[in-house]
Amino acid sequence: MASQGTKRSYEQMETDGERQNATEIRASVGKMIDGIGRFYIQMCTELKLSDYEGRLIQNSLTIERMVLSAFDERRNKYLEEHPSAGKDPKKTGGPIYKRVDRKWMRELVLYDKEEIRRIWRQANNGDDATAGLTHMMIWHSNLNDTTYQRTRALVRTGMDPRMCSLMQGSTLPRRSGAAGAAVKGVGTMVMELIRMIKRGINDRNFWRGENGRKTRSAYERMCNILKGKFQTAAQRAMMDQVRESRNPGNAEIEDLIFLARSALILRGSVAHKSCLPACVYGPAVASGYDFEKEGYSLVGIDPFKLLQNSQVYSLIRPNENPAHKSQLVWMACNSAAFEDLRVLSFIRGTKVSPRGKLSTRGVQIASNENMDAMESSTLELRSRYWAIRTRSGGNTNQQRASAGQISVQPAFSVQRNLPFDKPTIMAAFTGNTEGRTSDMRAEIIRMMEGAKPEEMSFQGRGVFELSDERAANPIVPSFDMSNEGSYFFGDNAEEYDN
């Protein structure tokens, strides 16, 4: 993207840094990872977990959730003011799984939030270390993106479920800051804005008074975040219109849905970061690795190297396929839920299948599930090659597409044709070009129609051997075009429920 120079890199967003050079960025990201790792080690000690239990991804998720809940100030305040039966607002906890007599047992633990905050700050040299908290939120978000298709949420806001490739980060909490905003897809931002506008339509006082002023500035800020994701002048001009509207209503909703559809071809720039579970960072720190000293990046080879040398386990339900569970977590670790499966298959070195073909449910185990038949197995999170994460949407291309997802959002900077089903997408653009945004709409449609099938995206960008740390010898991959490109292809993934 041309304006790259004016933006802070995501590592800076990730670490609240002012302008830093590459070495400083690597050190501050490393410091953040160190903090998460030290916190995780301490929690495993508190909970008396064995090494194996500490490497269980379900335990990692519970521990991450506990610290996120302990620092969720708004919710904590709300819980104190609106006490609900049987919930102690000062405590947080969740299921911890232990191996007892050759069987997995679930144990519900409860801790004072104050105590968890103390352990977290102690692991982070006394700081609140917001960057580390956001990092864990993005890992949870990436896992949700890989596990669930947001059909219901899309339909509720009037969008087409086939636009799911635009929904990265749709389950990120509001408090995820600049680093969170960077990884949100165009569809996620559109959905947040539509929800806001709908509230304004239904509630006369939404934009009024002292609160209304705050609401208005939040609305304009979200519009600017979305505008910054678009790469064409016409899309940005249309966002200006939406932002400046005196009284946002149905016309703005129409414009936003139009823009979301246009992003299936004229893709937005959305950041991709490899955020790993805390149970990967903990053992690495415990083994003596100093992330701050060595430096770390979320968008280069580092996460690949770390996963190459990590042992992570997962509980497996009786009829689940461990290899499929591994694929789910591998995609989440690489922030690749909406990437082209052919690119992923090449990088991973084994075939990556669409969601609907995987015999696996989510990673988390519900409290009512029976533990008797639970097994555990090693997650295979290694890769054959590594590639640089991208934040450009890439230019655009036609490809055989599917009944489910009709476009992709690249996660890796790797040369390819970008699949999208042009006739299906263009069919949504018939007729409606009147109104105050008509010239911009016409211009956007013209650009979409001009998108050429034979153009290559990320020209000359390749993948790298894991021994090639400096990215000196790019390998331009070859793809098996007979395979499906979309992950949520004609899909039956479970729906995400809060």
Rank of each mutant, 00 (worst) to 15 (best):
A22S: 01
L110I: 01
D112N: 03
R150T: 04
Q308D: 04
D127Q: 01
P248S: 04
R461Q: 14
N370Q: 00
N205M: 03
Q235N: 13
G209L: 01
P83Y: 14
F291Q: 13
I265M: 03
R195V: 13
S457F: 14
G462I: 10
L47Q: 04
A182M: 12
G93A: 07
G282C: 08
D439A: 12
S287W: 10
L193D: 13
C44W: 01
Q409G: 00
Y289F: 04
R208M: 08
S274F: 07
N125Q: 00
E443P: 07
Y219I: 10
N321W: 09
S60F: 02
L56F: 03
V408I: 09
A427C: 04
A336D: 05
S326Y: 11
G300W: 11
T360A: 12
D72C: 14
G30L: 13
L306H: 08
I406T: 14
A153L: 06
S345W: 05
S262T: 06
S141W: 12
S314M: 08
L108N: 13
Y78M: 08
I225F: 14
E320S: 08
I63W: 06
Q122M: 02
A233V: 08
E64D: 05
Q399V: 14
T147W: 07
Q241D: 12
K103M: 03
D340P: 11
S326R: 07
I445V: 01
P477K: 11
Q364M: 03
Y296D: 06
A336C: 03
K31A: 04
N59V: 05
L418H: 06
E53C: 03
Q409K: 03
A323N: 01
Y10E: 01
P423K: 15
S407H: 07
S383I: 07
T146R: 03
N321E: 03
A411V: 14
L133K: 15
R75W: 14
S407V: 14
D88Q: 03
S262P: 13
S478E: 11
L193M: 03
R261H: 08
D34Y: 01
F479Q: 01
T62L: 01
A131N: 13
D101M: 07
V100I: 12
F488T: 09
P95R: 01
V242S: 04
R243L: 01
Q409D: 09
S262D: 10
G5V: 05
D480Q: 03
F489T: 10
T360S: 03
E320R: 10
V29D: 06
V109Q: 00
S367T: 08
Q235F: 11
E107K: 08
I119Q: 15
L256Y: 05
T151I: 13
Y40K: 10
F464S: 13
R121V: 01
A387L: 08
A271E: 07
R152G: 15
C333T: 04
I33M: 04
S407L: 06
R213Y: 10
G460D: 06
T378N: 02
A323M: 03
D128Q: 12
T15N: 01
D128E: 05
V270N: 10
S310C: 01
M136S: 06
Y496A: 01
D16C: 07
V183A: 14
E339V: 12
D112T: 15
K7N: 07
G362R: 06
E494P: 05
T350Y: 09
I257D: 12
P283H: 02
E434Y: 04
E443Q: 03
A401K: 15
M331K: 14
L307G: 04
M1L: 14
S141F: 13
E24Q: 01
K91M: 09
A284C: 14
R150E: 08
G54W: 12
E449Y: 08
G180T: 10
F338Q: 07
E434I: 00
R117W: 14
T130V: 03
R121S: 03
G435S: 04
V155F: 02
N370E: 02
F346Y: 04
H82G: 13
M481A: 03
G300A: 04
T23P: 00
F464A: 09
G209F: 08
R221T: 14
G295V: 06
G132Y: 11
V109S: 01
S377C: 01
Y111F: 14
S3G: 09
I257E: 08
P419Y: 03
Q4R: 12
K273C: 09
K77I: 14
A278I: 13
L358Y: 11
C164L: 06
G5F: 09
Q20R: 12
V67Y: 10
A336H: 10
G394Q: 02
F479C: 04
G288E: 10
L266Y: 09
I365K: 08
T396C: 02
V67C: 07
A70R: 02
D497V: 14
E443V: 06
S287D: 10
F304M: 15
T350E: 09
G356F: 13
R195P: 03
K77V: 00
R74V: 09
K103R: 06
D51W: 13
R348I: 03
P318L: 14
P453D: 01
P322C: 00
G431Y: 05
N250F: 02
I225W: 12
Y487K: 01
E210D: 15
L381P: 14
N125F: 01
R208W: 10
P474K: 12
I301N: 01
S392W: 04
E465A: 05
M371V: 14
I253S: 13
E64R: 01
I197G: 15
R175W: 15
Q168I: 07
Q122A: 04
T146S: 14
R389M: 11
L344T: 04
L259M: 06
L344K: 09
I265C: 02
L328Y: 10
